[in-house]
């Protein structure tokens, strides 16, 4: 199995209107360096492209070794009107963890 976000970090999803935010927190410093370099907004946008055209914004929190992704349009029109079985998109954090990352030595 090739490297996935799941191997390096953990994730939680939150909702506001039709926007999902998903944080990814590294388990350790080595994982943080890979996530910071490789888990780009473009890579996340591609993994969510079947759900939303975005945009996806990425924020870095080095003090917490965490990234925060804000994914617009991901909640099927918004928590209160979505037809989805998971209108809050709580389970979308697990989709983030499936994203494959290039292997290779950091730095």
């Amino acid at each position: 199995m090739s490297l996935r976000v799941y191997d390096l970090g953990h994730a939680r999803a939150g909702d506001k209107g039709n926007t999902s935010n998903i944080s990814v927190t590294a388990y350790d410093q080595a994982g943080w360096e890979v996530l910071r370099r490789e888990l780009t907004a473009a890579r996340v946008a591609a993994a969510f492209a079947h759900l939303t055209a975005g945009p996806v914004r990425r924020y870095e929190l080095p003090g917490l070794r965490a990234l925060n992704f804000v994914i617009e349009g991901a909640l099927g029109g918004g928590v209160t009107r979505s037809l989805a079985i998971d209108p809050h998109g709580k389970a979308l954090s697990a989709l983030m963890l499936t994203i494959p990352l290039p292997e290779g030595t950091p730095g």
């Binding site: 953990h10 994730a11 939680r12 939150g14 909702d15 506001k16 926007t19 935010n21 944080s23 927190t25 914004r57 924020y59 929190l61 917490l64 070794r65 965490a66 925060n68 804000v70």
Partner: peptide, 11 residues
């Protein structure tokens, strides 16, 4: 860390 970023957009 999971909870501080819960429902957070621009930190």
């Amino acid at each position: 860390t999971e909870q501080i970023l819960y429902e957070m957009h621009d930190p």
